[in-house]
């Protein structure tokens, strides 16, 4: 049998002594954010799909109305940050477990980091700067409720 896989624990790496243990905090983050996300996501689904007219009520005006309130802005931003970092960290552990080769790992983890960072930045920007009726736009491009 051609021996292409190194024997386990070669070379033996010494245990690290000081500094922040990111593996540990990553592990704790997954548990903590998971519990909070259960509340946030089911609250989100309940508000969007069940309360009032349910799913048929969702349109541009519904989203615009929700993001007019700081409560829902912070709810959605918290969900965005927690879920993306939670998912990104999960993907990172899968890469650590299954990707072979230093180069492959670096590329995959870099891609995950870029995706998470870009989505968080864009999402946060949109949630806090969202204006359903931007001033100075032609009226035919704006939703009907802006006229009121």
């Amino acid at each position: 049998m051609s021996q292409t896989i190194d024997a386990p624990r070669t070379p033996v790496r010494p245990a690290r002594k000081k500094g922040i243990n990111w593996e540990k905090w990553g592990w704790i983050y997954m548990r903590a954010s998971g519990v909070i996300l259960v509340v946030l996501i089911f609250g989100h689904l309940f508000m969007n799909l069940i309360v009032g007219d349910g799913v048929s009520a969702i349109d541009f005006a519904f989203v615009g109305g929700k993001w007019a309130s700081p409560f829902w802005q912070w709810w959605d931003v918290a969900m965005l940050w927690l879920a993306l970092i939670h998912g990104g960290n999960g993907m990172r552990t899968i890469v650590n477990d299954y990707a072979r080769g230093k180069m492959t790992r670096t590329i995959l983890k870099g891609a995950i980091l870029a995706a998470v960072a870009i989505l968080i930045l864009l999402g946060t920007l949109v949630v806090f700067t969202f204006d359903p009726c931007p001033a100075g736009q032609p009226a035919d491009l704006l939703p009907s409720f802006c006229a009121a």
Partner: peptide
């Protein structure tokens, strides 16, 4: 505990 707190210690357990 310090040894098992390593990157290859208990935190790899899924």
């Amino acid at each position: 505990l310090d040894i098992l707190n390593d990157q290859e210690g208990v935190w790899r357990c899924r």
